[in-house]
Amino acid sequence: MNKIVEKEHFSENVVRLEIEAPRIAKARRAGHFVIVKVGETGERIPLTIAAANPERGTITLVIQKVGVSSRRITDLNVGDELTDLVGPLGEATHIEKVGTVLACGGGVGVAPLLPIVEALKKAGNRVVTILAARTKDLVILEEQIAEYSDEVIIMTDDGSYGKKGLITDGMKEVMEREKVDEAVVIGPAIMMKFAALTTKEYNVPTVASLNTIMVDGTGMCGACRITVGGKTKFVCVDGPEFDAHQVDFDEMLLRLNGYKEIEKGAEQQYLKSKDK
C-alpha cells in the first residue's frame, strides 16, 4: 500500500523518502504530519509531511536517525512498504499575508519548515529563512528552501559553512536590520526555547511547531500534552503549532526524556540485531 518510491541520503543520518499515499497526498496541507509504524512490533512515530505530489500520489518525509524507530524507517529501501501510515494529522499551518516572515529551522526541523516556507511565499510574504546545523554536512534542503525564500542565511555551530554561530545570532541580525512581522521556528526543543526568547525581546509574534512524544496522534492518549499559556494542550490535535511565547519549553524538554533510558536499550538491541 505505502510503497517507497524514492530514497535519498541528505547526510549520514538524514534521509528523504518519497512514499505512495495518494489520499494523504491529496488531503494534506502545510503543517500536517503522519504517524508511521514499521513492522508488526514497531512503534508509532510522528513525522511531518515535508512535501506532497498529489498527481503522483506521493508524500515526502525527511527523517533523522535518533533512535530505534527512526532507524527502522531510514533502513527501508525503494520498493519496501511501510506497515502502517496514517494521516494527515494535526492542524494545518495558518497561512496569511503578514509582510516579512522570519523562518528558522534547526537540524531536521528544516524538513517541516519547507512546506510552511513554500506556503508563506505563495501567500505573498517576504520570507527570510535561517537554516542552522552543527556542521556543514548536516545542512539539508538548502536548494528547496531557497526556491521559496527571498533570502537564505546559513548558520553552523563550527563555522564550516555559512556563518559561524547559533541560530539566535542569525535571528538577531535580521531583526536588528529590518522589521519582521512574524517568526516561525522549528527544530530541537532547546533551540525553539531560545529562539522564542529571542523573538520575544523584539516583540515578534512567533509560532513554534512542537515535536513531543506521541502514540496515537488522534487525541486519544494524552502522551503529547504540554502546557501552553498555563493550560494543558494536546500537540497532535491542538497543534503541532503554538504561540512560542506561551509554550512551557522546560516542561516539554523534561517530558521528551521520559522514556530515554528504555529507548537507548531498544536502539542498542536493534543495532546489534542488524550486525548479525
Partner: peptide
C-alpha cells in the same frame, strides 16, 4: 499533572 510518569489510562492501556 504533566510530570513524567503521569499518564492517562488510555495511554497506559494503549
Amino acid at each position: 499533572e504533566n510530570y513524567i510518569g503521569i499518564l492517562s489510562s488510555n495511554e497506559y492501556l494503549t
